[in-house]
Design a protein around this nucleic acid. Structure first.
Lengths: 168, 168
DNA sequence: GACATGCTTTTTACGAGTAAAACACCTGTT
DNA sequence: AACAGGTGTTTTACTCGTAAAAAGCATGTC
């Protein structure tokens, strides 16, 4: 069984600081590294379509919620700041992928929806993207994949709870 | 058992596109989300010391390698671009945390090392950072943590192999 | 020894994110 | 009706990352 990069890093730390509890690094370091590698590589089909991952997330959110959303709601769903969403919306709108409708009760708020073109784009790209991601992951067994999904889901619940109370 | 955010997203997709294979999203989505939450939250001790995560990575790399490194080597170790490293080195040097020594064979290359101050800083912060990370993770059992570390290590090996051949 | 080639590092120009302020608007109170 | 306070969105000023080009240097070949 080959060793991953983080294992070597942990060994170096043990030599420099014997006895240091590197347990958190073993998990968090690997998590971050996996995430970075996947984001770098797994966005290839998106980029071919001229979309960044954040833009894809906005379109995907509108698609899966299957109704109009306000910019603020999109920001919360995609875990982005309002300002970042404003910029993305401007570009997506300029490309004709989304459209805005003014609220008639409250003139501050806008209601976003996918244009036909936007919907076609996401519906065409999503299966490609998922298929590509599947090939990246098929080096590990299905059992392992499920175990990881489950374990990460558990971690996610803990973190969401922790950070909800930690960051407010 | 509470449900994590990604589970709800997967259900929405199933309603919009029944039968879509969302397996990759279950894993990759959770991975990215965990990574984002951890990075947002787990850097608190670093920020108190006035360090960003990338700066911390540079100092940590110099510390654990325990010898002089060239900027290029630091870039490879921290998975950053050369340009990004140049900027970080300039700031770390201005703060007196690292120093440069010119190579006398090849005048292009510089040899970086931690100053006493830099070494003291990283040695003081690292245990704090690890302890803080440990508290973030202690909501899941130790068995789970090990299982995740191991599974992510396996995934990392696969990705490193895949991307090494995919991206060059 | 001059030059083509390639390597290491830095610079430049630019795109994208953030925090904080600004802006526009609503709502409840007086 | 006026206004205080709150909310939704955008703007502003700034930081940081990147890709591509530039700068500087070494090395092998003719």
């Amino acid at each position: 069984m080959a060793e991953d990069i983080v294992a070597g890093v942990l060994r170096q730390w043990q030599q420099v600081h014997p006895g240091l509890d590197t347990g958190p690094m073993a998990l968090i370091g690997r998590l971050n590294r996996c995430s970075a590698l996947l984001q770098q590589a797994a966005d290839a089909p998106l980029r071919r379509a001229g979309l960044s991952r954040p833009e894809f997330d906005v379109l995907g959110t509108l698609r899966r919620m299957d109704r109009e959303l306000t910019p603020g709601r999109v920001a919360r769903e995609t875990f982005a700041s309002g300002a970042a969403v404003t910029k993305r919306l401007r570009q997506l709108e300029a490309r004709g992928l989304i459209s805005r409708r003014a609220d008639d009760r409250d003139r501050r708020v806008a209601h976003l929806s996918l244009t036909d073109e936007g919907r076609d784009l996401i519906d065409r790209i999503l299966p490609e993207q998922l298929a590509y991601e599947a090939t990246l992951l098929d080096g590990i067994g299905e059992r392992r994949r499920e175990e990881l999904s489950e374990g990460l889901g558990e971690l996610l619940v803990v973190l969401e709870g922790r950070l909800g109370s930690l960051l407010d």
